[in-house]
Design a protein around this nucleic acid. Structure first.
Lengths: 89, 89, 89, 89
DNA sequence: TCGCCTGATAGTTGCC
DNA sequence: GGCAACTATCAGGCGA
């Protein structure tokens, strides 16, 4: 009952799992780096709680600005405005 | 009365924040890659929920084993103390 | 132009907040009791770290079993699909 | 080698573990009640995120006010101030 | 696509 | 005072 197709599926699964595990490993390494930066900052007398808040806010600002611009572009297009001469799609 | 020391602190803060933001950017990129792998797997007919469970289990095995050994040592030590002949009052 | 509806909403909010605050108060009291039991145990010479480990293990058994069954069902279903004769390409 | 003392210790451990497990059970029940209140609020159209923020702030206010008063009393005592005529300790 | 719900992450507290 | 466990919050994925 277990045919060749199963092997193919098995190999595919294996490939997928390994790719993800590799990526998660990288992610964990970076996460670890971040922790180290905070630890170093703390060792230098900085308040990590405040640092986190600052970074969170900056990140929020960025996404909010991006969102604003996305909507702005949407409206501008809808109104037939040309945003930029070179961007005449 | 903002002295040179303030500039140093400011530069340090700036450096810390930029390092972390850079790392978070990398992290997000990887997170995005992971999402893409799952999306691709799904497109090939795999059940992503099961895939996630498999990966979680494999990851868990390691930490479970590590935890088991830690607890084992803990209990062994505690029992060694309890079973100590001098403690047989 | 604050109408009657506002009062209703306000009363509802007040009721919700008070119910939660009351419950959190109870929760904190219990949490405090737990701390006291551990403190008392420690005073009687018990290793609270080991006690915590024991309790965690006992608690874990249940959730582990529940999780196991959930994963088991998940896998069984997924395998049923893979081993389906029509899928034996 | 296992003497009467072991039985005593065993009984004590058992008692401690059971007391804690009982308390944790109660705590979980309350935690569950809290979840239900939030769920009910959500079902009635309230934004639970905001509700949580409100409750958090109220709780914070209380502890901050208590902290203020504690420090105030401390200073007042240090300065030989009489806080309240009836409180002439 | 939206709402729910689980899993990931950040923050807090207690221990060493 | 640093570190680790635990809790609460948040975000992403799943199902309707």
């Amino acid at each position: 009952m277990t045919g060749i197709g199963d092997n193919i599926a098995r190999d595919q699964i294996r490939a997928i799992v390994e790719r993800i595990e590799r990526l998660e490993e990288e992610k964990n390494a970076i996460q670890n780096d971040i922790k180290e930066v905070y630890a170093e900052a703390k060792a230098n007398g900085f308040d990590t709680k405040v640092l986190r808040a600052v970074i969170r806010d900056r990140d929020k600002e960025l996404s909010e600005r991006q969102e604003f611009e996305a909507i702005y572009d949407l409206y501008a297009h809808a109104l037939g405005m040309i945003l930029d001469p070179r961007n005449d799609d």
